[in-house]
């Protein structure tokens, strides 16, 4: 449905997108992940035919976007960054304008407005000027506008930015529901969102692809993947740490918090049985035990670190962590542990 090959875009001397290539098929929700300034929005602008690439090939729904942008745009619903809209119009007038501009008949337009205002829950504000709406409603107006012509491809640039947790959940449910027969691409720097809605992740930094795969595969890259954390109050942590290190397949044991030990496995290994056996042998009953599925922020920081040969001084690109956590309202994004109690809260924002 979407195919991109060797995409390159320069802004002056800056190579914003550098040889990006990927494919997205129906039913996929692709998460475009990367620090601010990584080239996410630029890539989306090229996908929607707004910007011309300097070189490369883009095909959306069988149409060459560079050659026939207007035709390709009929298959695309696009929510630009910040959900821009004409503030002086009412929601209803704005949606009607979008429908008319897309060539819908008056009847089709009315029923489409009815359908999307149900989908994103806009009925209560249809008659209000967009300028007077809250950020959450404005974002929903942007979504409604993108969905109005029932496109096959949805491209959403930071769809949940600035929404409260309830609204975020609602938008994610909406995206999950739409994904059944459409292709959805969302860009985000919120790691939690990728886990929640995407079945594929493309992580980019400095305009290049740093990772492509499923969210679970991304998590598996974390040194904390399958790590076991133990809460051991009233114990000699140093002694236990030394003992745990001797267990098979243990890469390291770290103390990240007072009276907590985290056993990091070797890549691909599963250390819970050994740790469990050791606890039994020592007759220790830890106050809590959890197995981590991986810490995305850790992976994010590692993968987006500038490569040695292309260190740039651009803001938002060094170290790669600058974008993380800005919008994450739930600090425990990286934890899919068995036990959510006493979760380490400091790991979330870098």
């Amino acid at each position: 449905m979407i195919k991109i090959e060797a995409l390159v875009k320069y802004f002056g001397a800056l190579k914003a997108v550098d040889g990006l290539a990927f494919e997205v098929n129906p039913g996929d929700v692709l998460g475009f992940l990367g620090p601010n300034g990584a080239g996410k929005s630029t890539t989306m602008k090229m996908l929607t035919g707004y910007l011309h690439p300097d070189s490369g090939y883009i095909n959306v729904a069988g149409v060459d976007v560079v050659q026939e942008p207007a035709l390709a745009q009929q298959h695309i619903g696009y929510l630009p960054e910040g959900a821009p809209a004409y503030g002086d119009m009412t929601v209803e007038a704005f949606l009607r304008f979008i429908g008319e501009a897309r060539g819908m008949s008056a009847i089709a337009c009315e029923s489409a407005i009815k359908r999307v205002s149900e989908q994103v829950e806009l009925h209560s504000v249809l008659a209000r000027p967009i300028d007077n709406l809250s950020k959450g409603f404005r974002r929903r107006v942007g979504l409604a506008q993108a969905l109005l012509h029932d496109p096959q491809v949805l491209i959403l640039d930071e769809p949940t930015d600035g929404l409260d947790p309830n609204q975020k959940r609602h938008v994610r449910e909406l995206i999950a529901g739409l994904a059944q027969d459409k292709v959805v691409i969302i860009s985000t720097h919120i790691l939690e969102e990728v886990m929640a809605v995407c079945n594929r992740v493309l992580l980019i930094a400095q305009g290049r692809c740093r990772f492509e795969g499923s969210p679970a595969e991304l998590e598996a890259l974390s040194p904390h993947h399958q790590a076991v954390s133990l809460h051991l109050p009233d114990r000699d942590i140093a002694a236990d740490q030394a003992q745990l290190k001797t267990l098979p397949d243990v890469a390291d044991v770290v103390c990240e918090q007072a009276q907590w030990l985290t056993v990091l496995p070797r890549a691909g290994a599963f250390v819970y049985p050994q740790v469990d056996q050791w606890l039994r042998e020592q007759q220790i009953t830890p106050q809590s035990v959890r197995v981590e599925s991986g810490r995305l922020d850790e992976v994010f920081t590692t993968l987006t670190r500038p490569a040695a040969d292309d260190v740039t001084g651009d803001d938002g690109q060094n170290g790669g962590g600058s974008g993380v956590g800005e919008g994450s309202d739930q600090p425990d994004i990286d934890q899919k542990g068995i036990d959510k109690k006493g979760i380490d809260k400091k790991g979330a924002s870098v």
Partner: peptide, 8 residues
Amino acid sequence: ELLMTLGI
């Protein structure tokens, strides 16, 4: 950006 991606 919105206006120029409506296919007009």
